[in-house]
Design a protein around this nucleic acid. Structure first.
Length: 453
RNA sequence: GGAGAGGUGGCUGAGUGGCUGAAAGCGGCGGUUUGCUAAACCGUUGUACGGGGUAAUGCCCGUACCCUGGGUUCGAAUCCCAGCCUCUCCGCCA
């Protein structure tokens, strides 16, 4: 059985002058051959996704690199031929032949230098080229132009004045924002007692549902090499969102998607081993750079949260990708249905789509305090975007080596979903009924009641 | 953290300057033999890029790749330097 690929091509691209070194994979990003063949398609993708790339400069660089490499290859051929010759020559004839080689060597050096100069620029630009979105993705400028495609469950009407999750959390003694801020600054919090129990209960419910469906549970590193961040597409564009441990050249992943998707990087799998379906729990770290002043209240947008994530690696087949996309969406809906929370599914528009995503469906769960649905899940499919960057391939039945397709979706993320759960399950007296599905995970607790005193 | 050993193809493992993209074995694939399986025997078996060719696949030529990067040399898996990673022993530790 073939398991590991041999091409662990991780190159250091260091701006020679200053650390930190930037890591990337030498393996292709988006397929440059496709960009050459249909530049218009990528120019359009760049426009609607709002990922600016100078394709004129990119193709120019590509052309010059290609030309230099072709000449270099020809020179190498003559060098190899001459080298074999020299081994057989003697004395004066040998001296003459060696002298001739010097000329070739000088040209080789020139070409090497040229390539060494152009290559990093080319790679840098290639890392910015977006994956073209699927035709069924609505064109739009930002999240306000996402299209609702389905609404599930009934939004609760209260016959009393409902409290928000922070008020409930304080009243019940299960959420402590001030002390979270004391320890770790803004956007931090502490879950306590039944609040922490409900947090773990939700995550465990999600894990158990996925395990029951036959998904493979992984426990993965969340402090990862930069190459993994580049490979999954979070770098370079999302670098501002990540906590970096620069001394060690590592960063904290914002989601288990990162290590789980990279799990098979630099490997060649066998088609019979596909699809691979993984589920993993991880703590997620996000700087929320650029979100200053946005969603500052409560547990909606925080620097650290816990999440159960699902990741699929499947055949390089459009239909297979579509089928798995439906599957991972349904898996997440199953968790919300078990929790009996109302939600809707939206088709995310081009402007709100990530660089690598072909299409994305967000699930938004009803949050009474926001008087709106709030994003709780994000189901994406990438086609080859991530697998090219990570070099994840498989051998198909005919023996051809192809890049896998990757997909991922939140199974559940907490505490964000606690906003919906606590607020929707609250009672007039300030207590919160524990959703039936969570009781087995909370020692049978049925209700979280206000503290005495 | 201290001391040592080592990184070669799917795996094991040979290879100390040109005839080595790489011996041998295992595994995989194809075939012969056989009532079936097994065994035996024969053949075959990396990836990427560029060029040529085809209706297309097969195919042909070239280049690169023996952890990564740099250096020495006409020529590097082989010599030198730096880095990364793995293993063993000791120490520390959830």
């Amino acid at each position: 059985m073939r398991r590991f690929g041999e091409a662990h091509v991780i190159a250091v691209y260091a701006a020679v002058a200053n650390p930190p070194a930037v890591w990337y994979r030498e393996a292709a990003m988006v397929d440059i051959k496709l960009v050459r063949a249909e530049p218009q398609k990528f120019i359009e993708a760049s426009r609607v996704k709002r990922c600016p790339v100078d394709f004129g400069a990119l193709l120019d660089l590509d052309g010059r690199l290609l030309k230099a490499r072709q000449e270099l290859q020809e020179i190498k051929t003559s060098q190899n031929v001459a080298g074999r010759e020299i081994a057989r020559l003697k004395d004066q004839a040998k001296q003459d032949a060696v002298a001739k080689m010097a000329l070739l060597k000088a040209r080789t050096k020139e070409l090497d230098d040229l390539i060494a100069q152009l290559e990093p620029k080319f790679q840098e630009m290639m890392l910015l080229v977006p994956q073209p979105p699927a035709p069924e993705v609505p064109v739009g400028k930002d999240e306000t132009e996402n299209v609702v495609i389905r609404v599930e469950g009934q939004v609760r009407k209260f016959d009393f004045e409902p409290k928000d999750h922070v008020q409930l959390g304080e009243l019940l003694g299960i959420i402590d924002v001030p002390r979270g801020v004391k320890l770790a600054g803004s956007r931090n919090y502490i879950l306590k007692g039944a609040g922490a129990m409900m947090h773990y209960a939700i995550l465990r419910l999600a894990l158990d549902q996925m395990i029951a469906k036959g998904w493979t549970l992984l426990n993965v590193p969340v402090l990862v090499n930069e190459s993994v961040m580049y490979g999954t597409g979070y770098f370079p564009l999302g670098r501002e969102q990540a906590y970096l441990c620069e001394r060690d050249g590592m960063s904290l992943a914002g989601t288990a998607e990162v290590p789980v998707t990279a799990y098979h990087s630099d490997e060649i799998l066998d088609e019979t081993e596909l699809p691979r379906k993984y589920v993993a729990f991880s703590t997620c770290f996000r700087r929320e750079a650029g979100a200053a002043g946005k969603d500052t209240y409560g547990l909606y947008r925080v620097h650290l949260f816990d999440k159960v994530e699902q990741v699929v690696l499947c055949r390089n087949d459009h239909q297979a990708s579509l089928d798995h996309h439906k599957e991972i969406l349904a898996n997440s809906e199953d968790v919300l249905k078990a929790l009996e929370l109302p939600y809707r599914v939206v088709n995310v528009c081009t402007g709100d789509l990530g660089q690598g995503q072909v299409q994305k469906f967000d699930i938004e769960t009803w949050m009474p305090s926001r008087k709106n649905y709030g994003e709780t899940h994000s189901a994406s499919r990438f086609h080859e975007f991530q697998s090219r960057r990570l070099n994840i391939r498989y051998r198909d039945c005919g023996g051809a080596v192809k890049f896998v397709h990757t997909l991922n979706n939140t199974v559940i993320a907490s505490p964000r979903v606690l906003i919906a759960a606590l607020e929707l399950y609250q009672n007039a007296d300030g207590s919160v009924t524990v959703p039936a599905a969570l009781r087995p995970y909370m020692n049978g607790m049925e209700k979280i009641a206000p503290r005495k005193g």
